[in-house]
Simulated scan of single mutants.
Amino acid sequence: MSRAIGVMDSGIGGLTVAKEIMHQLPNEQIVYIGDTARCPYGPRPSSEVKKYTWEMARFLYNQNIKMLVIACNTATAVALEEIQTAFDIPVIGVISPGARSAIKHTKNDRIGILGTSGTIKSKAYEVSLQDLRPSIETFPLACPKFVPLVESGEHAGSMAKKIVAETLYTLKSTKIDTLILGCTHYPLLQPIIEQYLGSSITVISSGDETAREVSAILAYRGELSARHEKEDHRFFTTGSSKIFGQVAMEWLQDNLSIEMVQLPGN
């Protein structure tokens, strides 16, 4: 039996990455966990984020996965290297793929970065971008209201438009031509963000590039699944399965099996 790909996030945002993996690798099974009971991670101390990230990583590892995707920028920034060293399966995050995608698209080397306060404070995107191209000028912006907005399921209404406009106002004068959505929750707000900023700015989410990296690694290791082995995706949440299910079904356009699970620290 083929093993699944594990995907983890602080909440429902990582579904944006899971969706891209499902699209690019339709024969693969996804096992997903969202720590909705303790979301958002962004304002939390890095030691706490690391603890919660490890709890989710161990939970997925025990599901006999063949690869782990940390689909949370805050968790990637604080725990990726440690988990990569400890596990005997490939472990990837979403920051490097997002940075590579932005480098491909920018024409004037001015890149905006939206993220949680934890991700912005870590400067992980700035480091990743400038490692790739030292001439890049970055314009980071913490967006503390975005994750609660998405987790509440209110990401498409008038309140979302108001919060996006208030938060992104300062970016209008930066002359960026590319904007990284440095949190996997933010693609659920992407239509509103694009409408507010206008068509001259390319908005990047890391899901597409992350899925390509998953595909390349599994192909290299000879671990891509054949169609006849496909099993149903499995979704776990530490909080309300109702809200998680509503957003998941809207985003993934599918009937899903969603289970509540208690992690050691819950």
Rank of each mutant, 00 (worst) to 15 (best):
K107Q: 15
L252I: 11
A226F: 10
A211L: 09
M249T: 15
F235K: 13
M249P: 00
I65D: 06
R110W: 06
N27Q: 14
T138A: 06
E20I: 01
S206F: 00
F244T: 03
E151D: 03
H105A: 14
Y52D: 04
K121S: 10
D232A: 15
I192P: 04
E250V: 00
V94Y: 02
S205V: 00
Q262L: 13
V214W: 06
K172I: 12
R110V: 03
A219W: 06
V49C: 02
M1T: 09
S2G: 10
A86D: 13
I201A: 06
D208Q: 10
D109C: 13
A124H: 10
E259C: 11
T74L: 02
I103C: 09
I180C: 03
D232P: 12
H228W: 14
E55A: 11
S117C: 00
I21T: 05
A226R: 12
V247D: 06
N255Y: 07
I5T: 03
K242C: 01
I193K: 04
G13N: 08
Q195N: 08
T53L: 05
F139E: 06
E194H: 02
H155L: 04
I113F: 07
K104G: 14
T210W: 03
F244G: 03
V214E: 07
L181E: 02
E154R: 12
P148N: 10
K230R: 15
P187K: 03
A156F: 11
R221I: 01
P90L: 11
G207A: 08
M56R: 09
P264A: 09
L129R: 08
M249W: 00
S158G: 00
H105C: 13
S117Q: 13
I70N: 09
T85C: 06
T36F: 05
T116H: 01
V247F: 10
R221F: 02
F87R: 02
G115F: 12
T85L: 13
D177F: 10
K51L: 13
Q246A: 11
T138H: 02
L168E: 06
H155V: 00
D254T: 11
K161V: 01
Q63I: 02
A124E: 10
E259M: 12
G207D: 10
S215Q: 15
H155M: 12
E229I: 12
I65K: 13
I113L: 14
S241N: 04
F235A: 12
P90R: 10
P144F: 01
K161A: 12
R38I: 03
Y32R: 07
M67V: 08
C183E: 03
Q130S: 14
K50R: 14
G153S: 10
R110A: 11
I120R: 07
V49S: 05
L80A: 09
I192G: 04
A77M: 01
A219K: 15
P187H: 04
E259K: 15
P140I: 07
Y220W: 07
S2C: 11
E194A: 12
V147T: 05
C39V: 15
S240P: 01
L171K: 06
I193R: 08
T138N: 07
G222L: 08
A248R: 00
N27L: 06
Y61V: 04
S215C: 07
S2A: 14
E213A: 12
V247W: 03
M260N: 15
I95F: 07
T76P: 04
I204M: 05
G34E: 13
G98A: 08
V94I: 13
A102R: 05
E28Y: 04
S200D: 15
G153P: 03
